[in-house]
Design a protein around this nucleic acid. Structure first.
Lengths: 213, 213, 213, 213
DNA sequence: AATTAATCGAGACGGTACGTCTAGTCTTGAC
DNA sequence: GTCAAGACTAGACGTACCGTCTCGATTAATT
């Protein structure tokens, strides 16, 4: 009956706005359910019940279990994104390795991350979501760490930005890949000793003085 | 009248023997379904239908989806285990990286590996199975490669065997982890250029002459 | 500003007055939806969308689906109430039978009548509404027809008014019931032949000369 | 693997046969739920739970609520299909009228029958099911009653079978229609007095001696 | 050759979760 | 106070799989 207010700014949406509280409750409930039940036994209905929310509300915001869990887990990765300056490149790398390993040790992340990654091999949209929500943000840590090391004179400055970006990608894959592989595939603990050995290898290479401590 | 349990000549069971043809058809069907549908959309009923077999027959042999898929996937990683001598440490590493990347590029392996690893985060027996069937065998390649490099004089010999083993483990996690992470998490291709960059980093370390080619 | 209810001063309500246009649009939309979808698949949301109106507006005026549909349907049965004098009792009855059958053949009345009657089995207020809005008005036709037949000498006059009323009720149930049952339950057409047979039966009874023409 | 036994008789169906007990439990549960809750609040899940049966089992046998209720109610009509010989045509008709009225007075039938009929105005398959499960069987009573009356000499015999069938249809619509209309639309009770009046009208017609008793 | 016992196919079974839909309510900002 | 828009809770819908079960029919090895 009434025309849809032609003079309104394009971003002004009508209707009741979505409840931010519901979002928070849902993501919290998802993480809780993930810890208690694990990925495969987590159900949308259960999450909704825990959050005190109707299932409809979940599906209005997320396409399904995968998307919901990615978002719920992404929040966890945000919490661990700081990189305290430990004074040397070696200490910084060891720090980030141990921090990342601790994150992967928490039951909600280990299962959820791998399940979502596994699912992403068949789902392009999900892959993109993981990349933007988790991967890209972690990659920033690599850039920050390298800048610090260059400021300290531990690493040479590069001129070409494209090559610098490529190198950052590479280092990120090496660090994250090694930790993930050690933890989930080799199924061995990432402890201080391993972190020292890995850092030595990363900095000095195979031909460096001594890999083992 | 003959008891099917111990006492009788081992393996001598009465009644109709299980069909070996069915086993083969089921495993083939499982692999095909895994490629087409991925882990989560693969269903027992569908596998049975593809194999031309009743669901009962599946459950008589495997406890569930997990056990079936792991069995179906196990031998995919048996192949590709040779390491041709390419004349230098650098060429050997680049070779193994590209070979492993090619393996992960095949859709059945990509999906299967991640699915099984994801499941293994909740299943200790499965984790052990992965370790012995996949990890340990691939690790031998690292040892072989290092020996060759030492024979060529590219790498120093180590005296202590325990440290040597630790180092091999580390290198294996770094190589496999980086390739897997690049392929599945970062979702970027592992091509010749990346392999060169990675090998340079691994050999020379961050402080080595130049990471980018 | 003009109050919608009589007795202005007490009814002087503040705020925006209700849109009469909306009422009309809603009832039209309800009838259209009823024809297209039938009672059970008619939804409030769909009616609102067809009427270009918010669901709130529906619920502000009607208590629910039942009330809305009954209102929308009520006046469909107001029409077709004349009984042209066809010269004989037999012709009058055949006329009213065919006229009523034609009314029930229209999809909106067929669906609407049954839907409302079905709902009325669980709703006393609705039952009363049907009685006053539909039954009583149609019943007048029976009285009129009988009077004409008595004037023509086709039927004897009765003295007792109570008995006369009871008989009129009975005849009405027989005529309307037979047509409705034939149309909706037996799902066979009410055509000229059937109308002749029915009229013969009604006038002459089972023992009358011949029921079939 | 094994060919599907090519020599088996065509009616021999393989697989586990359907549980007849489940059928009975479901129909009983449906009737019970109908009495307690009425048509609109009856849910498939609730019926399944009452019957101690999975929802799947309901849907394997019936297409939905409508079909299920038709079958459940049809059984009730079966119970009332006898027509005891009361010695005269008039007594037989009065008997069947009162018996049918009593059936329509039971809460599970009134609501269910009308709801299903209402739905059938939009659903050809449902209409056919109602016809075969309820209407046709009731119609047999008319044929039986007429035969008796003819045997007693109360009604003339007809030669032409087609005309006889048409007449039976007509009489059925008149009897059932009048009772249903009186009960559900006019919402007045069908008692002994009404039954007497109706029977007199049906037998003697409008011009018969006296309609009112 | 007859018996035995585990196999096979088919498909129904009780459960459980899915993702969708509708009812009816509530919240927002515009009128 | 009404309006359109649309988010909200609650709960039924019908579908899909799971893993189990019950059938009748095979099929070897043992009698």
């Amino acid at each position: 009956m009434t025309p849809p207010s032609p003079g309104s700014p394009p971003g002004t949406r009508t209707g009741r706005p979505r409840s931010a509280e519901a979002d928070r409750a849902i993501l919290d409930a998802t993480r809780a359910a993930l810890v208690e039940l694990g990925w495969s036994k987590l159900t949308m209905g259960d999450v909704a019940a825990r959050a005190g929310v109707a299932k409809t509300t979940l599906y209005r915001r997320w396409a399904g279990k995968n998307a919901l869990v990615v978002d719920a887990v992404a929040d966890l990765f945000d919490e661990h994104l700081e990189l305290p300056d430990r004074g040397s490149l070696q200490a910084d790398i060891e720090g980030v390795v141990l921090r990342f390993a601790a994150l992967l040790d928490r039951p909600e992340t280990k299962t959820a991350l791998m399940a979502v990654v596994a699912e992403s091999t068949r789902d392009e949209a999900l892959r993109e979501r993981i990349r933007s929500a988790i991967v890209e943000r972690q990659k920033d840590l690599v850039l920050l760490g390298r800048e610090r090391a260059q400021a300290r004179g531990e690493l040479p400055r590069e001129e070409e930005p494209a090559a610098a970006a490529r190198t950052a990608d590479l280092i990120f894959d090496v660090i994250a890949g090694a930790v993930v592989h050690r933890t989930l595939v080799s199924a061995e603990p990432v402890d201080g000793e391993w972190a020292r050995g890995f850092t030595a290898l990363l900095i000095g290479g195979l031909m460096g003085s001594s890999v083992s401590p």
